[in-house]
Design a protein around this nucleic acid. Structure first.
Lengths: 236, 236
DNA sequence: TGATCTTTTGTACGATAGTACAAATCACAT
DNA sequence: ATGTGATTTGTACTATCGTACAAAAGATCA
């Protein structure tokens, strides 16, 4: 259904501002922040470079707006799913539901288009890798609450595991999640075509299954108390 | 021991070429490829911008040389450790040894300085996130053999798990490994100071423990055959 | 239609990017 | 001491960057 645009949202093209946002998301998520120029974004969106300045003032402002419009809906979705997961009776099922509440919105949430959630999550992965300052500030103040709530929920399901271990394992989960979105082709390649790394449904199921098992692993202290371990010092 | 430099390796400073390589590694691994200028690198190495051109011709050439000097030693170390791991009798111990053979060199290997392995692995993580072309070519032709050997070894220890699942889980391992090196501070923050994300020994033990459990999880097909799963379509 | 506001276009400016290159400087064998 | 080759320095060139800004174009409503 094609809707006649109202006065407030467009002049010439049907929502040029939105087109710029989507183009920027895609380009930033694929090539990183610094590798993409404002002119690249404008061209991909079919806009004029000056139009980007008009709508978002600066390149940082554009990135900021991308985060702003995704963070809210995504965390809301996660909260809802987490609340529902907490109400699951069976402990094993509950843990799986909690993990799923964390993973699914990262792949599918998003205010608008299909794949918007995955695109934004991939963007976060790339910005995190590049140590982007704008992203770092937003992330710490927006996602840490959600992460803590997730960690607490997992910890309630696995009270015998120290919180520290759960933090590490949830960190691994986020890393695996990010990497799955960054280089899905590697999965296809290493499986010799048997798996499709860019199939979101497969990725989610595999990730949930593996993560639940990782969370349920024995705690580190009691894991292998009598074993020799290779000495590996040095801070990272 | 301070060695008198021979004519072939230096003129003014004690190995300026090496200083440039290390500085570039550090800067690229922290800020990404495009965010770092040749002038930044030269300054960090105490060199002149022209000196970078002299030794490595182009910025891409510098990145290429960084990969060249690390890939060989790291894969060699992995092969040795993997061969040793394959000889472990006990199946559970063998799986853990195999995972360790994959993880440990990523944190510690390196032709030279302490932390060189971690620095290079972090660099790979960042280049992978940025979709760097130079890196992509080298990676595919250098690390895929190692990855396949690793996957095969795991598969031998867990013959009842489909190879596809093992590929996914080893992919998650690499993602978790990368992310641990990219944002170790997040672990410290979320654990409220109880864990040190930049402690390589902890990271390795936690990662090995979690990954072994993930590999041992039941295969996806037989995991929960009678369960309803949320329908989540859409390619990434 | 004409006035007014929003959006888009086109262009320009200063800063910085990668790289080339000649001159200066060094280490070392003779 | 001097010549030679390797390395470092300094500088300059062109391209592209983010951004500013005036003019053009479109939309809206009296």
């Amino acid at each position: 259904m094609v809707r006649k645009p109202t006065s407030k949202e467009t002049a010439r093209k049907p929502n040029m501002r939105e087109a710029i946002l989507v183009a920027a998301e895609e380009l930033f998520a694929t090539n990183g922040f610094n590798a993409v120029s404002v002119r690249d974004i404008a061209q991909a969106a079919g806009a004029n470079p000056g139009s980007v300045t008009y709508h978002f003032k600066t390149k940082d402002g554009l990135l900021l707006e991308i985060y702003r419009r995704h963070c809210g809906p995504m965390n809301l979705r996660r909260s809802e799913l987490l609340a529902a997961a907490r109400r699951v009776r069976d402990l094993q099922d509950r843990l799986e539901a909690i993990v799923r509440a964390y993973v699914v919105p990262a792949f599918t949430s998003g205010s608008d288009l299909a794949g918007g959630g995955a695109r934004f999550t991939r963007l976060r992965a790339v910005m995190s890798a590049e140590g982007n300052e704008v992203a770092r500030k937003i992330i710490a103040q927006t996602f840490d609450d959600t992460s803590h709530a997730f960690i607490d929920a997992v910890h309630e399901s696995l009270p015998q595991i120290p919180r520290t271990d759960i933090v590490w394992r949830s960190h691994f989960l986020l890393g695996a999640l990010y990497y799955s979105l960054v280089t899905p082709d590697r999965v296809s390649r290493l499986s010799r075509g048997e798996a499709d790394g860019s199939d979101a449904a497969s990725a989610i199921e595999q990730l949930v299954q593996a993560t639940v098992a990782a969370f349920q692993a024995p705690a580190l202290d009691q894991a292998a108390p009598a074993r020799r371990r290779p000495v590996v010092g040095s801070k990272i």
